[in-house]
Amino acid sequence: MITRRKSRYVLIRSSEPLDMNSKADFGSFRNCMKDFMGERAYVSASMQMARQTAANTFIIRVNRGTERDAMLATAFIKELNGRKLGLLTLRMSGSINALMTFQNQRDANGALTKP
């Protein structure tokens, strides 16, 4: 029997621009998450980078049931790759499209992504 992996996507906004497609920034983020979540929770979450949607906004994918731990861990990250910043978890969804729709709506109304 093949079981489908069920995921949750989390939309995160940073106070500073980040390049989460680079090893340096994403590696630092991953290490911080591992530090805050602990090994067991981190392995359970199986976190992956899903998409960088803007200079300071990105989406990560975690296993369903671990998204709340991931959200809590992002609240404690105040430095990445030597830079001071803050991470805000804006929305959580079962699909990336829903998060992209949310982001596009917010961009139309302003105050989501920095230029």
Partner: peptide
């Protein structure tokens, strides 16, 4: 006191839950 210290309502709820 700065943008770095802001948290979203979801994060605040998780901290309260903790």
């Amino acid at each position: 006191e700065s943008e770095e210290e802001l948290v979203s309502s979801m994060q605040l709820l998780e901290i309260a839950n903790m």
